[in-house]
Deep mutational scan, measured.
Amino acid sequence: TLFEALYDYEARTEDDLSFHKGEKFQILNSSEGDWWEVRSLTTGETGYIPSPYLAPV
């Protein structure tokens, strides 16, 4: 399942991933609570992002 960003987000740590509203992601790991490890389909980068900022496509 692909997810889309509902809002912009600016990374706060080196493990976070900055992204823009509308960017699409592949979920790599969603078992860590509200922070999911994802791969951006736009940039190819991986990192953690807050799951409340995402919605299924």
Rank of each mutant, 00 (worst) to 15 (best):
T1E: 13
T1W: 11
T1Q: 14
T1K: 12
T1V: 13
T1C: 15
L2E: 07
L2Y: 10
L2N: 04
L2F: 10
F3N: 00
F3M: 08
F3L: 06
F3A: 06
E4H: 07
E4G: 02
E4K: 06
E4A: 07
E4I: 14
E4Y: 14
A5H: 00
A5W: 01
A5C: 04
A5Q: 01
L6F: 04
L6D: 03
L6Y: 04
L6C: 08
Y7L: 10
Y7V: 11
Y7W: 14
Y7M: 12
D8Y: 03
D8H: 06
D8L: 02
Y9V: 03
Y9T: 01
Y9L: 04
Y9A: 02
Y9F: 09
E10H: 11
E10A: 10
E10P: 06
E10I: 13
A11H: 06
A11E: 02
A11V: 03
A11L: 02
A11I: 02
R12M: 13
R12E: 12
R12L: 13
T13C: 15
T13M: 12
T13W: 14
T13D: 10
T13Y: 15
E14L: 12
E14V: 12
E14K: 13
E14A: 13
D15A: 13
D15M: 14
D15L: 13
D15T: 14
D16F: 14
D16Y: 13
D16T: 14
D16W: 11
D16K: 14
D16R: 14
L17R: 03
L17P: 04
L17H: 03
L17T: 04
L17G: 01
S18M: 04
S18Y: 03
S18V: 04
S18F: 04
S18D: 04
S18K: 05
F19L: 04
F19Y: 05
F19C: 08
F19D: 00
H20D: 05
H20G: 07
H20L: 11
H20I: 12
K21A: 10
K21L: 05
K21V: 09
K21R: 10
K21D: 01
G22A: 03
G22D: 03
G22Y: 05
G22N: 04
G22S: 04
G22M: 02
E23K: 00
E23Q: 07
E23A: 05
K24F: 11
K24C: 08
K24S: 05
K24E: 05
K24G: 03
F25M: 04
F25Q: 00
F25L: 05
F25S: 00
F25R: 00
F25Y: 01
F25I: 01
Q26N: 06
Q26S: 08
Q26Y: 13
L28T: 04
L28C: 06
L28W: 02
L28H: 01
L28I: 12
L28P: 00
N29H: 07
N29M: 06
N29W: 06
N29L: 05
S30T: 12
S30N: 13
S30P: 07
S31L: 10
S31R: 09
S31G: 11
S31N: 11
S31V: 10
S31M: 10
E32L: 14
E32K: 13
E32I: 12
E32Y: 13
E32V: 12
E32H: 13
E32Q: 14
E32D: 15
E32W: 12
G33I: 10
G33L: 10
G33K: 12
G33N: 12
D34L: 14
D34W: 14
D34E: 12
D34N: 09
D34A: 10
D34C: 15
D34I: 13
D34F: 15
W35L: 12
W35R: 15
W35E: 05
W35H: 08
W35V: 11
W36M: 05
W36K: 02
W36V: 09
W36F: 07
W36I: 07
W36D: 00
W36H: 01
W36T: 04
W36N: 01
W36S: 01
W36Q: 02
E37I: 13
E37D: 02
V38W: 00
V38P: 00
V38F: 01
V38M: 04
V38D: 00
V38K: 00
V38A: 10
V38E: 01
R39C: 07
R39T: 07
R39A: 04
R39L: 11
R39W: 05
R39S: 04
R39F: 07
S40A: 07
S40I: 06
S40T: 02
S40H: 07
S40C: 08
S40E: 01
L41N: 04
T42P: 01
T42Y: 08
T43H: 03
T43C: 03
T43L: 01
T43Q: 02
T43E: 01
T43I: 00
G44L: 06
G44M: 07
G44S: 05
E45L: 14
E45D: 09
E45G: 08
T46F: 06
T46K: 09
T46V: 14
T46P: 01
T46N: 05
G47N: 01
G47P: 00
G47R: 03
G47F: 05
G47Q: 03
Y48S: 05
Y48G: 02
Y48D: 01
I49D: 00
I49K: 00
I49A: 14
I49E: 00
P50M: 10
P50N: 10
P50D: 06
S51K: 11
S51T: 07
S51G: 11
S51R: 11
S51H: 09
S51P: 13
S51N: 10
P52D: 15
P52R: 15
P52Y: 15
Y53D: 05
Y53M: 14
Y53F: 11
Y53A: 15
Y53G: 08
L54E: 04
L54I: 10
L54N: 03
L54Q: 03
L54A: 04
L54F: 07
L54M: 07
L54H: 03
L54V: 11
A55Y: 09
A55E: 10
P56Q: 08
P56W: 04
P56I: 08
P56N: 06
P56E: 11
P56V: 08
V57Y: 05
V57C: 08
V57T: 08
V57I: 12
V57K: 03
V57A: 08
